[in-house]
Amino acid sequence: MPFAKLPFANHKSLIVLALTYWLYFGQLGVLVPYLGIFLDGRGFSSAEIGELFAVITLARILGPGIWAGIADKKGNAVSVLRLGSFLTVATFCSVFLFEGFWGLTLSFGLMMMFWTAVLPQLEVITMKSVEGTKASYGLIRLWGSIGFICLTVGVGKALDSFSTETPVIASVGVLLLLFVTTLFIQAPKASAEKHTAVGSIWQYAKQRPFVVFIFASICLQISFGAYYGFFALYMRDLGYSGQQTGLFIALGVLVEVGIFLIASRLTARFGVWNLLFASLLLTALRWYALASAADSMAVILLSQVIHALSFGLTHAVSVHFIHQFLPPAFHSRGQAIYISVAFGFGGAFGNYMAGQQWDQGANAYETFATAAVFSAIGAASLFFCKRKHLM
């Protein structure tokens, strides 16, 4: 067990954090790959699916900043994390009350608004908890990938036997367990050095390294619109079963586990700029491979291996960059800007654009080729910032 040599208190605290990551990303493994299938089962068109994805993703723009501002000012990230988890499961249950587009949009939008309180606080708590220990952020975060794998495969298999309502039913159980787990999270001990916010976070956010980093992250998330919204439907149209689709998605996350174990060493060795550039470029190749040769299982498997870089490595180095570039007093708000702007705006635009292009699968090539273009633009944008400024 990787935590075995830590003191008992730290041991217990880090295990609870690992379990929280397991459930948080496990929930993403339940809903994100299969939300399109759920909505398709409710009779939504591909354009409506893309629009709903876009609308609910917009909640990620406002939510993180509001919650992170509260957490930074009150200095109580744990309470914000718990409140967000509780309100997430409470509002998500309203999915069962609505059938139409706007009713479901309201349900998922409210759920997403409160959901955005969870990850930025969890990242900050984890980074502070591993300081001064033999553990690392990647060691804790990898359990999120394991949770994603377990629940993606499980729900994919269940879809072969049960209705398209399965993802939302499973989500309620996972979200409830997530809230219960947050009740056992302990706030990390405060540093002996008191961190006081001086000035505004925008004096840092407007600097070129941060602007370039955010722009590249936006491009990456735009490119993920096709994958998040339509990969499962794409695989179904190509004749793959729900279990096979779950295994494809799980493979992508499985390779993340290995990346998270070595992410800290890779970052120290190659730096943020080099790792982001390589990941964005290979992600562009990944999307184009899916666009042009997805009828080959070998191509699908290879593209899923690249997911370790597309998501795993880019996320790990992004968290590292924010933690190093911003003063401690702005860590929560820095994570919030990253999540709200990159995942919120970028994700919403990517989902909407993919939905407009998809046309019930008739334009699969064009949709994934467009995703490849945006990822390549993100890679090229890094040349507007010197390597030494993005470390």
Results as ranks from 00 to 15, higher is better:
residue 11 H to V: 08
residue 11 H to P: 03
residue 12 K to V: 14
residue 12 K to S: 13
residue 14 L to R: 00
residue 14 L to Q: 02
residue 15 I to D: 09
residue 15 I to E: 10
residue 16 V to M: 09
residue 16 V to Y: 09
residue 16 V to F: 12
residue 16 V to E: 07
residue 17 L to N: 05
residue 17 L to R: 03
residue 19 L to S: 14
residue 19 L to C: 15
residue 20 T to W: 14
residue 20 T to E: 12
residue 20 T to N: 15
residue 20 T to K: 12
residue 21 Y to Q: 10
residue 21 Y to A: 07
residue 21 Y to L: 05
residue 21 Y to C: 08
residue 22 W to Q: 05
residue 22 W to I: 14
residue 23 L to F: 15
residue 24 Y to T: 05
residue 24 Y to V: 05
residue 24 Y to I: 06
residue 24 Y to N: 03
residue 24 Y to F: 06
residue 25 F to R: 07
residue 25 F to L: 11
residue 26 G to E: 09
residue 27 Q to A: 15
residue 29 G to C: 09
residue 29 G to K: 05
residue 30 V to C: 10
residue 30 V to T: 12
residue 31 L to D: 03
residue 31 L to M: 11
residue 31 L to R: 05
residue 32 V to D: 02
residue 32 V to G: 00
residue 32 V to M: 02
residue 33 P to M: 10
residue 33 P to D: 13
residue 33 P to N: 09
residue 34 Y to I: 11
residue 34 Y to S: 11
residue 35 L to T: 09
residue 35 L to E: 10
residue 36 G to S: 11
residue 37 I to N: 07
residue 38 F to H: 11
residue 38 F to E: 04
residue 38 F to S: 10
residue 38 F to C: 05
residue 38 F to T: 07
residue 39 L to I: 06
residue 40 D to S: 09
residue 40 D to P: 01
residue 41 G to E: 14
residue 41 G to I: 11
residue 42 R to N: 05
residue 42 R to H: 05
residue 42 R to K: 12
residue 42 R to D: 01
residue 43 G to T: 01
residue 43 G to I: 00
residue 44 F to V: 03
residue 44 F to W: 00
residue 44 F to P: 02
residue 45 S to L: 02
residue 45 S to E: 06
residue 45 S to D: 04
residue 46 S to M: 13
residue 46 S to P: 11
residue 46 S to N: 14
residue 46 S to H: 10
residue 47 A to Y: 08
residue 47 A to F: 08
residue 48 E to W: 03
residue 48 E to D: 12
residue 48 E to L: 07
residue 49 I to C: 01
residue 50 G to D: 07
residue 50 G to S: 12
residue 50 G to Q: 12
residue 52 L to A: 00
residue 52 L to Y: 00
residue 52 L to E: 00
residue 53 F to R: 00
residue 54 A to C: 01
residue 54 A to W: 01
residue 55 V to E: 08
residue 55 V to C: 06
residue 55 V to I: 15
residue 56 I to H: 00
residue 56 I to C: 03
residue 56 I to V: 06
residue 56 I to L: 10
residue 57 T to N: 15
residue 57 T to S: 10
residue 58 L to T: 04
residue 58 L to D: 02
residue 58 L to R: 02
residue 59 A to Q: 05
residue 59 A to M: 11
